[in-house]
Simulated scan of single mutants.
Amino acid sequence: MNATLHGVRLGLERGLREFRHSLRSSDQFFTLFSSIGFLTVLWFQRDSRVEDTSLTLAALTLPSIIGMSVVFGGLVGPAGQLAVNREDGTLLRAKAVPNGMVGYLVGRVTQTSLDTAFAQLAFLVPGAFLVDVLAGVGAADLLALVAVLLLGMLATLPWGAVIGSIAKSPGSAMGMTMLPIMGVTAISGIFYPITAMPGWLQAVAQVFPMYWAGHGTRWALLPDAAAAAELGGTWRLPLAVVVLGTWAVVGFLVAPTILRRMARRESGSDMESRRQAALQRIS
């Protein structure tokens, strides 16, 4: 078997194994807690009507949260995991074996994708009982949803890896992802229509993947009448593809260079200094 393909196969196996392990660990507490929080939001929004539509605010929020989760997972997951693996020596060990970095990166992508899909299902399944507008969703709509989510993942995964490569610690990686994501989420029409925001904030939101991932998931799951709550009163799927695709292309051009540079600089002494810094933070 080709050595690179062998590394890919090992990475897939590693990603699946680590995902199964995460299902039995306390890591899923955050997923459960987040799902309960989002479902609570839907419960309070279930009777609020959106202006110019016959839909409830909960009907717009549910698919928006699905789009938000793929951006969140694509950025925070790889950034945190890469920072942790640099600190505990996992990355250094991967670097030391043939095609180890290939297997490592494939494993990270596999686990991140599965973690994100699990989090979405944990919210979407019970959410469907609160938001009856999803009852008319068919197979074509679900395929469209999968396509949007895959594009959203491609637009964010490489940037999560970049952040994890330049962060000095897991804590700084979280700070570099969580705080910006919270700010962008607040202006991207996830929990209420973006049309309620000032024009300049609407323009800022449309630069980032968050808004377009939410726009795409709403397009996939909601009826055509829901477009009245969007900017311009219409679905802008071609522009969504362009923006998300641009983030993906630029990310995959930038990330490999930064990852290679980071891997070349990894050494036992660097890992030990990070480990000692981590022990000091704990103590």
Rank of each mutant, 00 (worst) to 15 (best):
P223R: 04
M68S: 13
S283V: 07
L157F: 15
G73S: 10
G100I: 10
Y211A: 03
F208W: 12
L82F: 14
T116H: 04
G214V: 03
T246W: 08
F44D: 00
R261A: 12
L12Q: 03
V243H: 09
A226S: 14
W212T: 05
I194L: 12
S273P: 04
S25M: 07
F30R: 07
R93W: 04
D27W: 14
R9K: 12
G175Y: 08
P198Y: 03
S22Y: 09
S54D: 15
A59S: 13
R218L: 05
Q81P: 07
T257G: 15
R9F: 11
L201W: 12
K95Y: 03
T53R: 07
F118R: 00
V250P: 01
R274A: 08
L55F: 02
V70M: 06
T61L: 00
T156R: 05
H21A: 15
G100Q: 01
A205P: 02
A128C: 05
L42N: 01
G199S: 14
A3Q: 05
L16M: 14
G171V: 07
D270F: 13
G189F: 09
S25Y: 01
A119Q: 03
R274G: 06
P78Y: 06
D224V: 07
V50M: 00
A263G: 10
G251I: 01
R14H: 12
P78K: 05
G245C: 08
V84I: 14
R236D: 06
R264L: 15
A83I: 08
A227Q: 13
A96W: 04
D132K: 11
M197I: 12
R9V: 10
D132A: 11
D88N: 14
L239E: 08
L60H: 05
P223T: 00
G80T: 14
V133H: 09
F191E: 00
T177M: 02
T234R: 15
V148A: 13
T90Y: 10
A220L: 11
D115T: 10
T31M: 04
V137M: 06
W247K: 02
R218I: 09
N99W: 15
S273H: 15
F33N: 03
T246S: 13
L75T: 11
R260E: 09
M262Q: 11
V102C: 00
N99T: 15
R93D: 04
